[in-house]
């Protein structure tokens, strides 16, 4: 077995990285916001909200993909709105793959950030207020730096999840080489044809290396961040 990649495989790898990165970057602000609400706000129905956020974790990916189709499809309410007003089309595009990957990784992302927000010593935030910082600046200058390791950890989890996403993606935006065919979809395709085991293994190896690389990188970053914000690992 050699690692001479076909152009199709190279495309799938780059596409996967792009999809995963965009998925993480685009869901980052939303994830922080939702995590904040879950960690800090109390309102009737929060349990339901929490459950909805975690839905992609519990639903079969294919169902999530189908729900995405119902909401973000080109004739679906949100999908049509976004296409008309922002020119954002998901249907059979890599953007749709990124959306599916973002949605599937979202609960993991939110969970990690939420835990770190709950771990923040709120007395530090009180201290910042007494020093004259308005609420938004407290969040920006105290809370945010303190939850950075959680954001990082959640981002890597979401990235890893995005890299491996298959079920929702293929249901939502199909499996089109060069457009929506990620490593996971390519592996699937190869395992479905006689003689596809070699390329499938090759891509599997690459995705293992990429995932491990991301995890190691994040661990190193997390250590550095923890040192930088003065937290020592217990």
């Amino acid at each position: 077995m050699t690692l001479d990649l076909t152009p199709e495989e190279t495309t799938a790898i780059w596409l996967t990285l792009r999809v995963a990165l965009v998925a993480v970057a685009a869901s980052l602000p939303v994830a922080i916001l939702v995590a904040w609400v879950l960690a800090r706000c109390r309102f009737p129905g929060i349990v339901l909200f929490d459950a909805i956020v975690h839905l992609p974790l519990t639903l079969p990916p294919v169902v999530t993909g189908f729900l995405l189709l119902l909401v973000f499809g080109r004739r679906a309410p949100v999908g049509a709105f976004l296409a008309e007003h922002f020119g954002l089309v998901f249907s059979f595009r890599w953007t749709g793959a990124a959306l599916a990957a973002a949605v599937m990784g979202f609960p993991l992302f939110v969970r990690a950030i939420r835990l770190s927000i709950e771990a923040v010593d709120r007395r530090l935030e009180d201290a910042a207020s007494t020093l004259g910082a308005p609420r938004a600046l407290v969040a920006l200058t105290v809370t945010l730096p303190l939850i950075l390791p959680g954001i990082l950890a959640g981002g890597v989890l979401a990235f890893a999840r995005a890299m491996g996403e298959f079920g929702a993606t293929v249901t939502f935006v199909s499996n089109i080489p060069g457009e929506t065919q990620t490593i996971a979809s390519a592996i699937y395709t190869y395992t479905q044809v006689p003689g596809g085991d070699g390329p499938a293994l090759r891509l599997t190896l690459i995705s293992v290396v990429l995932s491990l690389g991301a995890l190691v990188l994040s661990e190193l970053l997390a250590r550095r961040t923890r040192r930088a914000i003065g937290q020592t690992r217990p």
């Binding site: 010593d121 007395r123 530090l124 009180d126 201290a127 910042a128 207020s129 007494t130 020093l131 004259g132 910082a133 308005p134 609420r135 105290v142 730096p145 303190l146 930088a228 914000i229 003065g230 937290q231």
Partner: peptide, 18 residues
């Protein structure tokens, strides 16, 4: 709080660790 101009030294120093 942030507009009171009231400084506060807590029992524990509460310095920002970062």
């Amino acid at each position: 709080v942030h507009k009171r101009g009231v400084g506060y030294v807590f029992q524990e120093a509460r310095l920002f660790p970062h």
